[in-house]
Design a protein around this nucleic acid. Structure first.
Lengths: 228, 228
DNA sequence: TATGATATGATAGTATTACTATTATATTTG
DNA sequence: CAAATATAATAGTAATACTATCATATCATA
């Protein structure tokens, strides 16, 4: 990916933050260093106090950007899914054939993020690892319905729906396009997690990977036209 | 299910607890009421102090059974997976045909737990809901590798492996039996969660359910003998 | 039934977390 | 240069997640 992305801003629901972290140097530092710290110590042990110490700033200043660390996680996750959605649309836009389009889509959303590409202060490689290890915590809460109503998961849902539509486009008769789309996204995160921590529970080692597994899963579920 | 189960004890790795909660009335109360409280308020807001108040016991007494609430969650999860493994083996043991055995297995592990069956102080219906909403939190931690080495996830892994072996028995050439088995378990929890909180992301509503979806997914991934 | 062992309860105390509030000091902008 | 705004510093609170100690209740057995 190239400089094109530098001029593109991933827009996150502005109810997630108190003050847009993109609007100041401190805000960007908060986002940048929180990614690095959450990756290092895990979300559970991460606190605004520790982040303040690390960036030479005050805890109270961080609260001016995010209500609490849960909202910060929602922000990082939304940003990540928005970024991935952008990659997805960019990479599949020109593909006319429904099956090929879906194939490419699965590739984009299931592969390991390899390079810190383009957005200056956000390290997508680390962010991808954070999403694998922490994303579930953003919705496995008692407040999930309220937060869903407030639109905090919109970007993720939009991404699932895009994939769902691609599945439906490839096979109009397939009865579970949304479930399958959510399985691709969530299953990809899970397989990547297993690879790191429970390798006996996955086959995505050595000569294969989550992308191959999930392509196999999806394309065997669908009835494709014989020339596809 | 009937009284047979009342004489069967699900055995959980004894490093998970300080003192076996099955060994005393207080221990059983701790387990029973923690299930009810975690279901009500969610694992994050649940504390030993609150549990002590609820059962008319002291916080310090609870610490004599479990080091912390994380270990209690590991205990509840292990118990649940052990219980499910038992259901699985019991229900599939007599089935000779590999495909039919697998079909039954998927049914057992993906269906909603319907009745509080047999183990006096443990409500499996609530426990099933807790597992859906909280299980990921037991392994999405920085200590996962250490705890895995200590055997805290053995029962879950054994269950995945049983399903993996059933998949392999139904189709020796299928390249991803472990990944698919883990997708069935984790995907089932996820679909049930979506059903409750993100119904637009699943098709498992009304005329279908996670069981149908996952059976479709698995059996379309496999090449079965034509008479199966 | 007395004696000791074990289980449980009560109380206190600590460090950390997750904030809120207030005031002071930079920095930016008009 | 003044006013507005952003950030920093400090203090304080309630809750969390424990640990330690001591008291009391129960239970097991000689």
């Amino acid at each position: 990916m190239d400089r094109l992305f530098q001029s593109i801003k991933i827009s996150v629901n502005d109810k997630i933050f108190v003050k847009d972290p993109e609007s100041s140097a401190l805000g960007k530092t908060i986002v940048e260093e929180s990614i690095s710290m959450i990756h290092e110590m895990g979300f559970d042990k991460f606190t605004f106090k520790k982040l303040g110490d690390r960036i030479g700033s005050n805890e109270s200043s961080i609260y001016r950007y995010f209500e609490n660390k849960h909202k910060l996680l929602l922000y990082l996750a939304s940003w990540y899914w928005g970024w991935l959605e952008y990659q997805l649309v960019f990479a599949t836009n020109s593909i006319a054939d429904a099956a090929k389009k879906l194939d490419k889509a699965i590739e984009i959303v299931t592969q390991t993020t390899e390079e810190d590409s383009s957005f200056s202060h956000i390290n997508e490689v680390l962010l991808n690892k954070i999403v694998i290890h922490e994303y579930s915590k953003s919705y496995l809460t008692k407040e999930v319905d309220k937060e869903n109503r407030e639109g905090y998961f919109e970007i993720y849902k939009r991404l699932v729906n895009r994939i769902s539509e691609m599945i439906a486009a490839a096979d109009r008769d397939y009865p579970y396009p949304s479930s399958l789309a959510s399985t691709v996204l969530e299953g990809s995160l899970h397989q990547h997690f297993l690879l790191d921590h429970f390798s006996s529970l996955t086959d995505c080692l050595e000569h294969t990977d989550p992308t191959h597994y999930l392509k196999h899963l999806v394309f065997n579920s669908l009835n494709l036209p014989t020339n596809g």
